[in-house]
Nucleic acid binder design. Structure first.
Length: 257
DNA sequence: GCGACAG
DNA sequence: ATCTTGTCGC
């Protein structure tokens, strides 16, 4: 009797799981671009970053942000802020179904209006292969956009036997300077990500993983050189600007009537 | 049963 | 994600 009323939630999860498996077949691991192998990433001129900022008590309205910075200067070349209505809820392991649609639209707007500014790589706030089914939001956006993508998570997703253990905390303490990192291995032995100390000052590491068309080593090196502060500049700028957009367009839309 | 759970 | 000021340190 209870099965027939199985919350639509369950059907959706199964559908999403299947879609991830399907898209994963199109995922390209490993470097595909000349600049990824070149010393100092010669040939790389534009790096993109995406992020969404939310309004406090609101689950569906958000500001989707895309920024493109010059490389290696990391100066702003393009920015796009767009209010969006999110169709899917946030479910751990399925972040892409909530955030990817509007981010793809942002990339399409850029393609249509300023194609010469299309980024050669996109930094995504969240994981790539470091995911329950090895297909996080950075892989999802990468496959659907076709662009090389890097996943950068600010906190540890405990998955595939990787946990926030004493051993893990100990390894973090061994990261002495910016650029130091250690691998995160799944129970299978496969390296899914690299914990990276992004600068000399930051103690809390970033978790870098392959999104699309990248080797993990290249993703980590590029992330490191894009960090002025803890979070790589493309993502940080997208975060700062989308939140600034909400602040000016929806001044305290809650408290003071 | 309990805990975890990117953004 | 968001709620939130000051504060300690270079």
């Amino acid at each position: 009797m209870c099965e027939m009323s199985a919350v639509p939630e369950q059907d959706l999860i199964e559908q999403w799981t299947s879609e991830q498996a399907s898209l994963k077949q199109r995922l390209v691991e490993g470097d595909t671009e000349e600049w990824q192998r070149a010393p100092d990433f010669k040939g790389l001129e534009r790096v993109g970053g995406v992020d969404l900022s939310y309004i406090k008590g609101d689950d569906i309205n958000a500001c989707a942000q895309l920024v493109v910075l010059s490389f290696p200067e990391l100066e702003l070349l393009y920015e796009d802020s767009q209010m969006v209505t999110l169709a899917a809820p946030y479910v751990a392991g399925f972040l892409a179904f909530r955030e990817t649609p509007c981010l793809l639209e942002a990339l399409q707007r850029l393609e249509r209006t300023q194609p010469s500014l299309m980024p050669q790589v996109v930094f995504v706030d969240g994981n790539g292969l470091f995911h329950y089914r090895e297909f996080g939001v950075a892989c999802h956006l990468g496959v659907l956009s076709g662009l090389p993508c890097v996943g950068v998570a600010k906190s540890l997703l405990q998955v595939q036997g990787i946990i926030r253990s004493e051993e893990h905390l100990s390894q973090i303490r061994e990261l002495k300077k910016g650029g130091d990192s250690f691998p995160l291995k799944a129970t299978s032995g496969r390296v899914l990500a690299q914990a990276l100390r992004s600068s000399d000052k930051s103690t809390k590491p970033l978790y870098v993983s392959v999104g699309h068309r990248f080797s993990l080593d290249t993703a980590v090196r590029l992330t490191h050189v894009c960090c002025r502060y803890r979070v790589p500049e493309p993502i940080r700028q997208a975060d700062v600007r989308s939140r600034e957009y909400l602040r000016t367009h929806f001044p305290s839309a809650d408290t003071c009537g």
